[in-house]
Design a protein around this nucleic acid. Structure first.
Lengths: 195, 195
DNA sequence: CGTCTATTTGAATGTACTCAAAAGCGGTGG
DNA sequence: CCACCGCTTTTGAGTACATTCAAATAGACG
């Protein structure tokens, strides 16, 4: 049930058995069908989610109604609208399942209590967010310094597993290009990787 | 001397006098001349920097030799190459002063010791990085969903103070466009804001 | 004052977009 | 199980935004 999330945490901090028990006591689990949302823009994001199975996406819808993927989260990844969660203000992101999925989640009061009961978790989440920040900052640089072809190559090198299971449309949305463009880029890419 | 950094910290955590003293004991200060670097790509980033005065930039140089600004840091902001600092691996970013500046900094062993001596700092840096992550994630979305004009408007709304003191070239590099394009965008912008 | 860099402006080019239409694929109900 | 419907992907043609290259002007610094 909780093997994956406990292993995820053990990469950063070591828990005593009773600390593990306490942590598990704040967790909830939910199964999601493809396209089912856990968060809609405008709602307050009350939970932080860990993906136990499947794949979720966090995306923003702009004024023109276009979707832009902020983050994909497959097994062993965390997701949520951090700003909304922290400040209890309306979310800017939507989060839904791209495949049938299972998430483990907990609410903010539980997390605040966890920080007090088991202060090591301050350290854990600090490191988690540090890694997320580093990856996102790198993505900014890549978005402004590479053209669409390069960003696609970069994506499939970095996330080869995701490339396999994500629809083209979603990858295009993540890369900041239209599905039409990505379709062309892909067919070029395949052509060049045959000869 | 340390008023600004202490006030920055007090926004997130409350320190006892002896905790404040301990924190101050790990700090160093350095004055920088315009264009002076505190970090070059390839070096290991041994320090985390707080800008006490002036303005710094963290930038990446791509294969073609083009510079891309990851972050500006004016008074009361933090900067560094977090990945390099955390993992003691070669930095991908360069950091230099855009104006004559003064930074307060500390090294990683001191920080690790600080986390042990004053665990509240785990919380402080968690919150600091959370905010940085949120801002950077938002920037990703804006970079892919807006055209250059919109990104520029967005920039001057969000960082009106920076707009004043940064050279056009640096802003262009941050926005991911050429100086020529930003020059045209600006002259259009001024035209439209007269009528 | 002279040099070096930053900014502006112009013209031609290119990358990625929009709009349109056809083909492919998956899920649903008969 | 198959047929249909809706959504995704592909492909084509024309367009727009931003780039590149070039040259002139302005500004900063020694």
């Amino acid at each position: 049930m909780h093997e994956l999330i406990l292993e995820n945490i053990s990469r950063f901090i070591q828990l005593e058995p009773q600390e593990t028990d306490y942590f598990i006591s704040i967790l909830h689990t939910k199964k999601l069908r493809k396209r089912q949302h856990v968060l809609h823009e405008g709602e307050i994001c009350r939970y932080e989610y860990f993906v136990n199975k499947g794949c979720l996406r966090a995306y923003h819808v702009d004024d023109k109604g276009l979707e832009h993927v902020a983050q994909f989260a497959i097994e062993d990844w965390w997701t949520g609208d951090m700003y909304s969660f922290l400040t209890s203000t309306p979310a800017r992101l939507n989060i839904d399942a791209i495949e049938d999925s299972e998430v483990i989640y907990f609410d903010k009061p539980s997390l605040e209590k966890l920080y007090i009961e088991v202060p090591k978790f301050e350290r854990f989440f600090r490191m988690l967010v540090q890694n997320a920040f580093i990856a996102t900052q790198r993505r900014v640089i890549e978005t402004v310094s590479m053209n669409a072809d390069q960003r696609y190559c970069n994506f499939i090198e970095r996330y080869p597993k995701m490339e396999q299971r994500l629809p083209l449309k979603q990858i295009a949305s993540y890369l900041g290009i239209t599905p039409e463009s990505l379709s062309r880029i892909r067919s070029n890419y395949i052509k060049n990787h045959k000869g």
